[in-house]
Amino acid sequence: MRILGLALRRLAASVPTLLIILAGLFLLLQLAPGDTVDALVAQMGGGDPAMIGELRRFYGLDAPVLAQLMNYLWRLVRLDLGYSAIYGKPVVAVILERLPATLLLMVSALSFAFAAGMALGVVAARRVNQWPDTLISTLGLIFYATPSFWFGLMGIVVFAVWLGWLPPGGFETIGSGYTGIDRAIDIALHLVLPTVTLALIFLAIYLRIMRASMLEVLTLDFVRTARAKGLAEHGVVRRHVLRNALLPMVTLIGLQAGTMLGGSVVVESVFALPGLGRLAYESVVQRDLNTLLGIVFVSALLVIVINFLVDIAYARLDPRIGSQT
């Protein structure tokens, strides 16, 4: 209960942050050339000044900037993100349609990066300065430097074009009529390459942090105690070191949530996945600023929620956190 209270307090502290983001986005929107009415009029193929003025009044665009800002915030509180002229529906509907694919991609990439990064980090730390460590650390450096979109393209060339093992893109086979478990397998096959592509840079970061944190914990007194009481090395690593070394990894999930969302823009574009990231890209190309700002808002919310969950997980892993305050 105490943990929840702590996490909730942190959540409340992010409200001012959210307000700053919204005010900033609103200002950016003011700076952008053209407004909603310009877009509408352009779509109608022009209109006379009287009608344009009438439209501005209708959308509240003739009010003072501060009143408009208040108006904008009030609409966001009711989750009214405006109307997308390109898609012809409310922005919320467009975003909700695209959200599942992105969440699925993020969760699978995060799990893969976390698990593989942890395993590689542990191996590297146990064989520190021997060849497995050198190999893994070098791989980590190379993964860190690899542009994800390029890795994705090369993955398509090798696994989809040459070997023909995996589909080159898309979320599922269109018109296949798969249902139930077949459909799940089909989607999973489509997500293999995007998951690895998105996870690559995070895998590199996780393995580096895991290695450093393992090495740090291995020098602590309680590890010596555990060894002294006769525990096998395997038991020491698994029961004592691993659990403590995982804490910085969990923190990192919260810190990297935003980066991962940003990375999904590129990955979803490479693999033609119908997700939030590709929607962001499309709305830039089509100058659909309403949708773009809506996505930024939803992403910020998502980052805040993920950090809230990380706070709770963190307190569960480390009992000291909940009891200290």
């Binding site: 700053i20 590129v266 830039v284 100058r287 910020a300 805040i304």
Partner: peptide, 23 residues
């Protein structure tokens, strides 16, 4: 620090897209 936090909460690549779209 609140402003810094705000910048860190928005995914930087998305913010980059917004800036490029506007400017």
């Amino acid at each position: 620090m609140r402003v810094t936090e705000a910048f860190q909460t928005v995914p930087s690549f998305l913010l980059l897209l917004v800036l490029v779209a506007v400017f």
